[in-house]
Every structure is written in C-alpha cells, then in structure tokens.
Amino acid sequence: MSQRNLLGGTVVFAVALGLILVGAAVAPYAFQLGGSAPADTENAAKQAFDADELVATPGPESGEVTMDSNAEPKTVLIDVAHENGVSESDMQPLVDALVANGHQVKYLTREDAQRNFNASLRSADAFVVVNPEQPYTGDQLAGLRSFEDAGGRVALVGDPQSAGTTSVLGLITVSVSSGAVGGDAGLTSDYGVSFGSSSLYNMHDYYLNYENVYATPEGETALTEGVDEVVFRDAAPLSVSADSVSPALVSGGETRVESIRKTGPYTVAAQSETVVAIGDADFLAPESAYEADNEVLVGNLADFLVSGDKESGAPAPATPESGGEAGSAPGQGTAPTPA
C-alpha cells in the first residue's frame, strides 16, 4: 500500500466525517426553519357556539307597588307566630304599600298568639298567613273562622310543602303519599281551597328557570285587575272545590306538577269575597315583586286586605265550648286538578 493511497483514503475519510458533523450541526437549525405545522388560526370554538343565541337575560325589574283603594285606615295582621317560613323583609313591598297608604301593619308574634289569639284578631281587619310551619290550635281555627265570617279579610299564601311537614297553612300535619296532595282538611278545606305539596314547572315557557312559571288571569277578579302576566317561583297548584271561590291566576298549558308530571294548566291563585289564596310566597319578596306584573298583583293584594268592613268585636273571646276541635282532624287532601 503506497503512502499516496493511504493519504488519499485519510483525506476521503476526513472530508466525509466533516460533512457528517457539519450536517449534524446544521440540521437542528434547518428543522427549526422548517418549523412545525402552521398554527391553525381558524377559531373552531366560535364556530361551535353562537353567543347571541345562547345568552339568557333577566327581564327588567320595574314598576311600583301602588294601591287603588281609598279605604279608611285599616289594620293588617301578619302571622309570624307559627314558625312562618318568611321573614318580615320578604314581604316588604306589601308592607310598604300598606303603610304608604295610611294603613297599619302589625305582626302576630308567638307570645301574642299564645296569650290571646282572638284578641289580636279582634283588633285587625285583615290577617295574612304565609308558610306557617306550626299547626294552629282548635281555638285559633275557630277564631279565624269567626274573623272571616265577620268580614275580615284573610290571605293564605304558601309555597309547596314537602311531604311530612305541616300543611301549607300549618293547620294540620300532612302525610303526603303522592307528593302532589296538600293536606287541607282544616281551615283551607272550609274555604274550598287546598294547596298542592309539589312544585309546578314548565319546560316550554318559563322565566330563566323551569321552576319560574308564568301565570295569567283567569276570569275577572279584583286580585288580577291590571295583571297581564306574573312570575311565580316554586309555585304550588291549588285545588278549588267551592263555588264561592274563583280561580284568579292560572299557569300555562304546558305546566306540570313535579311529582306526578301531570300536565296543567293549574290554578295558582284563587279568590272569594273574603279570602285570597296564592300558591307562591316568593312574589312578595323584593327580589321578585317587580318581575313581570308581580308588582300589580302585590298592589291588588294590598287593596284586597283593606277592602273589608269587619264587624267590631269579632272574633269573640274564646270559650271552652267554642274551642272545639275544628281543624284538628287529619287532612285528607285532594289532588290538584288542572284548571
């Protein structure tokens, strides 16, 4: 092997090795120049959603709670003696309207009720019961009947009650089997109205949530004068069984009862000459009182409360004989039926 051959081989080897090393050194930069695939600038997420079609917007809360009545100053007694599931602030729009129109609003405390329930009623022209959780005594029931017979106004307002609790009016203990039956064998049965224990909902036409149902006037009642549509949150269906009581507000046709899923429409408010029954308490609260025409309904309820002309001295003081057992029988209840 000549030196020339060896030199030639060495040169070739060095050149090849050099090229490889240079190539290896340059390769990363070459790959970097090539880069990864160009970024996909197409906004696929925006194609999947149209924000304009998605957004739900709360309606305006407007209007004022006003009263049309020019009645003389009356006294409205609000029951907070029976562990009522409502605070004073929850009824502020109603109270404010009454006070602004010269009427007096008092709260029946537990002590008042225990000391002399009938005496408290005697000094009042209207009695408001909202979501009581303690049952009334026989004497109290008798006093309430006498109060109403004498022309006193009674407003019964209640949300759906869960099974095993007291009835919507706290008049008796409820034992609910179907979940849609309110136990109202006490005073409310006397009034010809019973409250359902299961909520209403509407999957087709509702305000922001399926449990916020719309209700519209049924017939012509003073309670719904000027009302086109109200929103009830967590409403209870009412069953009306007396000729003297008329449905006042009815939910939409596709409303259902949550427990039995039976399609409505359902009565959610009813009125007789002396009694108003409303299957929702939330509309009285400041948060809901100005949705839809709720403020008109609140004003009409205030007008109703001061519309009576109660005989003085009623109810008479309770006697052992008059104490009776009224309202103490277990409620049988009736299933709410479509209006």
Binding site: P58, L208, N209, N212
Partner: peptide, 15 residues
C-alpha cells in the same frame, strides 16, 4: 342576584 345566576346557568344549558 338570583336572576343573574339563573340566567348564567340557563345560558350554559342553552349551549
């Protein structure tokens, strides 16, 4: 407010 929370959840439901 409760209204706004309900509206938010309803918006997500729509999507």
């Amino acid at each position: 407010t409760l209204d706004h929370r309900e509206a938010q959840i309803e918006t997500l439901k729509h999507a």
